[in-house]
Design a protein around this nucleic acid. Structure first.
Lengths: 223, 223
DNA sequence: GCCTTACCCGTACGGCGTATAGTTGTCAAC
DNA sequence: GTTGACAACTATACGCCGTACGGGTAAGGC
């Protein structure tokens, strides 16, 4: 009865497993010890491949960046291109719910795939007529708009089961409904939509519409 | 030689000190042990006033919410009112750099002052002609736009000294400038504006403009 | 005099990131 | 075929963290 041979560890394998763990149980579940255990290895083994936990997390972020599709339809107008990029970003961030948290630490947006995405966005904005300063700010804003949209999705809290999420929503809704209607008429009225963690499409569509419309307004005003 | 009498602890005093600590050294400096030491008290003393650290942090968040000015100019039109609210939010978040991180945990946006702010925003949006669903989504979006603007300010990293921040900026700028210009022409071109952590007014003005313009466009399209 | 209540301390547990030093498997050089 | 170097790990330990549990102690009511 031979020991089940564990394949050699590799940076990529660790990152893959770490990302899967983050996706499944939230970023706070990604600890050196837990990840090592999942990989059937001693905690300190990871330090052979990564200088620190932060470098490991940077590895996760890097991998997430590679998943976003930076292809823009050359025949579309620039608002459609911008929208496409933002939607691609959102798609990736939604499949990796902890990635948004990850991308906040500034030095995790400097990997090469991140640069490429940034470059493409800047190019689109350049063609839209924005100068370097505005293009930079708007590209930055687009990234954070995507992150915020994902993190502000009602009921967003990575690592929760669907049942827990539903219960949270129910509680939030009840709490809102039971507010004094004379002091909080609008809140009571909006109890349901404010906590609607069911169909998120409305949330994302409105968010993207808002952003693109804003940029278009700026472009029009800038001329 | 009498012991220097320490005044009795109170919830408010702990929150005050905690917020000051967060402002000065970042949220990760706010540990039970450190905060207790600052207050001249044993860690477990804080647990008399708060059930858990999370409840303490909720206390910080609550206090931050009370600082935002929810007064809207009744003579202004709704875009100006919306802008005023957002600017007030941003002002507070900027004076408490760690507050943005704090407000992410959903249950820290349910205190009474938070509700009031929300109610006011919903009222403004209602008068702008949005239905409950859109008003709810846009109010939500406004809050997160404020948070995002603060956290996406170039060089944002609470608990850093000005010198460290300047050094970070310098490094980021150099790294961008040294990219291969044939692969990243726009990035190289935007090296300076992308890392401009000096005058932040441009950043915030553009962010608010973007948001308000977006909402106005939505209002116009909705009619 | 006693008891309750509010407030605080001491100790301990399990988990975290990681510094430091030791162990093993692999494989080229002699 | 032995040796030695090096890559890839393991073992142990340190100092943090949040916090459960079980006291202690001064003030005030009876």
């Amino acid at each position: 009865m031979s020991e089940t041979e564990r394949p050699r560890l590799s940076k990529a394998a660790v990152v893959k497993r770490g990302l899967a763990l983050a996706d499944a149980e939230g970023l706070e579940a990604v600890t050196i010890r837990r990840l090592a255990a999942d990989l059937g290895v001693t905690p300190m083994a990871l330090y052979w491949h990564f200088r620190s936990k932060d470098e490991l997390l940077a590895g996760l972020a890097d991998r997430v960046w590679t998943e976003i599709d930076v292809h823009v339809d050359p025949d579309a107008d620039w608002p459609a291109q911008l929208r496409g990029l933002l939607e691609s970003l959102i798609r990736v961030l939604r499949t990796h719910p902890s990635a948004s948290q990850l991308l906040f630490s500034g030095e995790k947006r400097t990997s090469e795939p991140a640069m490429i995405a940034n470059e493409v966005a800047l190019e689109v904005l350049h063609r839209a007529g924005f100068d370097a300063e505005h293009a930079a700010a708007i590209a930055h804003s687009a990234l954070f708009t995507g992150i915020m949209l994902v993190m502000s999705e009602p009921g967003f809290e990575p690592g929760l089961t669907d049942a827990e999420r539903a219960e949270h929503q129910r509680l939030a809704r009840v709490r809102l409904s039971l507010l004094p209607p004379d002091k909080f008429p609008r809140l009571v009225e909006c109890a349901v939509p404010m906590t609607a963690s069911d169909n998120p499409d409305f949330h994302y569509k409105l968010g993207v519409d808002l952003f693109v419309a804003g940029v278009q307004a700026l472009a029009a005003a800038g001329t």
